[in-house]
């Protein structure tokens, strides 16, 4: 599991540039799935057939997004400094001094113009990227080039810190679930989606293609367990969080109940999540075609959307065990009489 997390976290993939992550996922799943395809937008769809190849088996879609937040160059100035726009929910208060990496490996640091009131978060147009250029002519970056927070994994007290647990940790859960899962009563589609961070854009077309009977999105959620945190009843290390609701969707009650029941039966610690802002691919999947019973399983993460996000390995392991338990049995209360 540690290697898996490390490998996925080191792949470069801001929204719209998920090819490297896709290659890594394909390699990690080699020999573990029945077929794979990449759709028009770049979503990777892998399939694991039901036992005996039963044609009428219910179709379950599990989705985790490959993309991470980043920045995109809007202008190269006369001195070679790069102005940029956000790709996804960048928090400008954390950006000064942050290192970002471009696809070709070039690393830049985010600097700021002088500001009259340094107590306030800088505005985006006061910031720029310095790639160490001596002159403009030496700058390889051009308008439209994207960068992600510089990658790297640190392990502190056994907990991984990365700039992109959102949502490589979800990808890791999905890869490991597909590896462990034996053919069962359900046909399982693992969907590694694109462009979640800029408006859950990849998930809807992929769900249209899969046309599942049930779906679960795998993503991170915030926690309320740090000093003077905004109150939230989710703690790191207390198990994966079964989503009740977030800023974009209310989880299907049947899916939520099924997750809770299987967790109880298997003795897996879980928490319930109510997130006041933000959403996941589940929102887009839920309203695909004529509607899909959809839930979400979240890995609690501190400091989401910053260059240093922390998760707990026990929560990750719990999520994998819970998903395997759900997929290995009939989908009672969601897809009945099939």
């Amino acid at each position: 599991m540690k290697d898996l997390i490390q490998t996925l976290a080191e792949a470069w993939g801001p929204s719209g540039h998920e090819a490297a992550v896709r290659e890594v996922v394909l390699r990690l799943l080699e020999g573990h799935v029945d077929d794979t395809r990449v759709d028009a937008l770049g979503n990777l769809v892998v399939r694991k057939a039901a036992a005996g190849g039963a044609a009428a088996a219910p179709k379950v879609m599990l989705a985790a997004h490959m993309d991470e937040i980043g920045v995109i160059v809007t202008h190269v100035d006369a001195e070679g400094f790069l102005r940029f726009a956000p790709v996804g929910g960048i928090l400008t208060g954390n950006l000064i001094g942050t290192r970002v990496a471009f696809e070709d490996g070039t690393v830049g640091v985010i600097g700021s113009e002088k500001r009259d009131d340094a107590s306030k978060a800088p505005k985006l147009d006061e910031l720029f990227i310095d790639v160490g250029a001596r002159e403009r002519a030496g700058v390889r970056q051009k308008v439209g080039d994207a960068a992600a927070f510089r990658h790297g994994v640190d392990w502190s007290n056994g907990r991984p810190i990365t700039p992109n647990h959102d949502d490589r940790i979800g990808c890791a859960v999905l890869v490991e679930t597909l590896r462990r899962l034996a053919p069962g009563p359900n046909e399982v589609f693992g969907v590694f989606t694109v462009q979640e961070e800029i408006g859950v854009r990849g998930a809807a077309p992929s769900a249209f293609g899969v046309a599942p009977d049930m779906a679960v999105a795998l993503d991170v959620t915030g926690t309320g367990d740090t000093p003077e945190a905004r109150p939230m009843a989710v703690r790191l290390g207390h198990g994966p969080a079964i989503k009740v609701k977030d800023g974009g969707m209310i989880a299907h009650r049947g899916v939520r109940a099924l997750l809770e029941r299987r967790a109880e039966q298997a003795g897996i610690a879980v928490q319930l999540e109510v997130l006041t802002g933000g959403t996941t691919d589940a929102m887009a999947i839920q309203t695909s075609r004529a509607g899909v019973p959809t839930g979400a399983l979240s890995i609690p993460s501190r400091y989401v959307h910053t260059p240093s996000q922390i998760v707990d390995l026990g929560d990750v392991e719990g999520a994998v065990r819970l998903l395997v338990a759900v997929l290995a049995q009939p989908l009672e209360g969601v897809v009945d009489g099939r």
Binding site: I72, H75, A85, K142, G144, F208, G209
Partner: peptide
Amino acid sequence: LRAPKGGGTDGGRIHLAREGV
């Protein structure tokens, strides 16, 4: 190359149609 800033076009809907375009 248009600088990646605000604004949108019909492309915003077209690329998400059906299985994506």
